[in-house]
């Protein structure tokens, strides 16, 4: 299989930086929301929305589109940034995040915003929904794929493993999921709160095709996505090793930024850091 080109990787990295900036601005305006987990999955979501997925912002319900389910719904700012920059809605809406009357609810709401496939926010439910969509697409003979992003703390939910069995049992090879393994959850380190390793072995044991990658290595993300498409008879899980708060040195690996928004001063510093990193 052809590896992703260097030009594409550079473009996507630039786009990921743009997403991170929008996430930070949005959260600062809202003064609440989930910073760490939005930043950790930014590269994955960039690769999906700006490279891999077939979708049409002008026709969000296009029958043959690929689907994306944000099972870790608290990373809503990341999804909103991806949708806004794709052109699903006006960028100016982003500053209304979490405000009364805004379609950008604290967690994604499919009733208020185009491009949201399904409302999420209560952890552990997205993969089951992704499986259902995948089964429906297969019944219709459509080749569309279903992507699903889970948090690593989220896989402590029992329903995730019910869905893991179902996807393998029904050979849903049009499902490609990610675990955003940033190692932190609200109460602390995942493996101190509730031991989740070995993640890769668990998914393999459940009958999935598994890739273990650096979730900030854009080439690795795209290559894994491409390879997943060639796997028949099995769903794919991409275990993405990530850093919570990735991209902003003073947020990285800090558990308190799971559910805390940047202050205006932190935003200034963060945007500067992102700009300088690219130089």
């Amino acid at each position: 299989m052809a590896k992703v080109s260097q030009t594409t990787v550079i473009e996507l990295k630039e786009k990921a930086k743009e997403l991170r900036k929008e996430i930070l601005k949005m959260l600062t305006a809202a003064q609440s929301g989930h910073t760490g987990g939005s930043l950790s999955a930014a590269d994955i979501v960039t690769a999906l929305y700006f490279h891999k997925m077939r979708h049409n912002p002008k026709d969000p319900k296009w029958r043959e589109r690929d689907r994306f389910i944000l099972s870790k719904g608290h990373a809503a700012p990341l999804l909103y940034a991806a949708l806004a920059l794709s052109g699903y809605f006006s960028k100016s809406l982003m500053k209304t995040l979490r405000k009364l009357g805004s379609p950008l609810q604290g967690h994604p709401c499919s009733k208020t915003l185009p491009g949201i496939e399904i409302s999420t926010g209560s952890l552990g439910q997205g993969l089951s929904i992704a499986n259902g969509i995948a089964a429906g697409l297969k019944l219709d003979g459509l080749g569309s794929r279903v992507y699903c992003l889970l948090g690593d703390g989220e896989i402590q939910e029992g329903q995730v493993w019910e869905a893991a069995m179902t996807a393998a049992h029904y050979k849903l090879d049009n499902v490609c999921a990610f675990v955003d393994n940033n190692g932190l959850q609200i109460d602390g380190h995942c493996c101190e709160v509730m031991y989740i390793e070995p993640i890769v072995k668990k998914w393999e044991a459940f009958g999935w095709n598994v890739f273990d990658i650096n979730g900030h290595d854009m080439a690795a993300i795209v290559n894994a996505l491409n390879q997943a498409e060639t796997v028949k008879g099995k769903p794919t899980m991409i275990v993405a090793r990530t850093v919570k708060g990735k991209g902003i040195s003073f947020f990285e690996g800090k558990v308190q930024y799971h559910g805390m928004a940047p202050t205006p001063e932190e935003l200034k510093k963060a945007l500067k850091e992102l700009d300088e990193n690219g130089k």
């Binding site: 399904i118 929904i129 259902g132 329903q159 179902t166």
Partner: peptide
């Protein structure tokens, strides 16, 4: 779906979305 009611509801939801 086997003995997995929660997954059944999610799966049904996904099917309805198509």
């Amino acid at each position: 779906i086997g003995v997995a009611e929660q997954d059944m509801i999610g799966m049904a939801s996904g099917l309805s979305l198509t």
